[in-house]
Design a protein around this nucleic acid. Structure first.
Lengths: 209, 209
DNA sequence: GTCTATAACCAGATAGAC
DNA sequence: GTCTATCTGGTTATAGAC
């Protein structure tokens, strides 16, 4: 049986202690290396058009070896989804869930933006494979793991909050996501400056006007 | 050989003259009925997770019959993509291409919003199947069919335009798309009112502030 | 214009050797 | 921890009858 039979929440590079496990080229454990390649291929070609054989080939071993680390292809996608979960601090989450004030939403989004930008590829993965990820969410995905997207979704569906505010929140989320996805187009702009531009957009939509 | 061997730009319900071709339940030609079902299933379950067998079953005939109307599964997706193309008037397109003024972009988007809202599902399809559609765009898709998305994309990539303006345009597009996708959440709001809220968002991002 | 039958293929997944 | 070999099932696509 594999060392981690059920899917575990992976938190990303920060968790990896250098020289922590066998691995190959780097000190990174194989499981992480698989996830890194998968993230790259899934974002580039799409989840469904990427085969396990392809992932394995890139790493220099065979398809079946991947099955030692993950129970299924879905399991890989799920693990990447959990990387996103891992980015969220609980304190921010509670803030969103409790308050119904656009100013608070804007603050949370603003504070979260740097982390989003630093882990941009993870968001692009989600943006480009919505269909596959939502299928995953419907079945499986047992524990009601709360993440940022879930928190905001529940706000959007809350009828006690004025429609105008909710619509503008929805737009602000879309605007930020769009900003992340097309960040490559603005590669010549320094990251800090770029993030500030996005922050301003969030502000204009949620508190300004 | 099929009546329309290569993919033709389908324009939607407006093109269908009542009693125009055999069809079945309605006066709609079979080709259109296939596209309607495909649109529904592709948006719901995703392009890759929908099989031709499933589409055929819904229509009451067999998988192979679908191949009479379309050369491949990709061809169906492409035809739906062309429905989107069909929504765009050339006059609006030129407007976007020529001007580099945020005010103009806002006007175009505003004028286009009603049509976008009326054909919402088409946009949701594109939003939820970006990966599949971009693969399609890379290969095939011969004639440089210009659509709204292409026009705006070329603006975003134009270095002659101030970065701030371009970033805000990118955000505005994302905001509108997000608004379209989550329109169901706000089903209780009258459409006109909802579209006005979105128009305001576009305005705040592109001309206000 | 639609259907039956079937070909050809490749994916995800398993068993068990090393 | 990785490999070879194999199973199983579903997918796109074709040929040809009605």
């Amino acid at each position: 049986m594999p060392p981690t039979p059920s899917t575990t929440g992976e938190v990303g590079p920060a968790t990896v202690v250098p020289g922590d496990a066998p691995g190959d080229g780097d000190g990174k454990p194989t499981r992480e290396r698989i996830l890194d390649i998968a993230l790259e291929l899934f974002t580039e070609q799409g989840y469904d058009k990427t085969s396990l054989r392809e992932i394995a080939e890139r790493l220099g071993f065979s398809k079946a070896a991947v099955y030692y680390h993950f129970a299924s292809k879905d399991d890989i996608l799920l693990a990447l989804h959990y990387r996103l979960h891992g980015l969220t601090e609980d304190s921010l989450l509670e803030l969103v869930g409790s308050a119904s004030d656009p100013q608070v939403w804007a603050d949370v989004l603003s504070r979260f933006l740097d982390k989003m930008m630093a882990n941009r590829q993870l968001f692009v993965l989600h943006e480009r494979n919505r269909a596959a990820l939502e299928t995953l969410h419907r079945e499986g995905h047992p524990e009601r793991h709360q993440d940022m997207a879930d928190a905001f979704r529940s706000v959007l569906a809350n009828p006690a909050i004025p429609v105008r505010d909710r619509v503008r929140l929805s737009c602000a989320l879309g605007a930020v996501m769009s900003g992340l996805v097309s960040a490559d187009t603005f590669a010549e702009v320094p990251t800090d400056e770029y993030v500030d531009l996005l922050r301003q957009v969030v502000d204009d939509l949620l508190v300004g006007a």
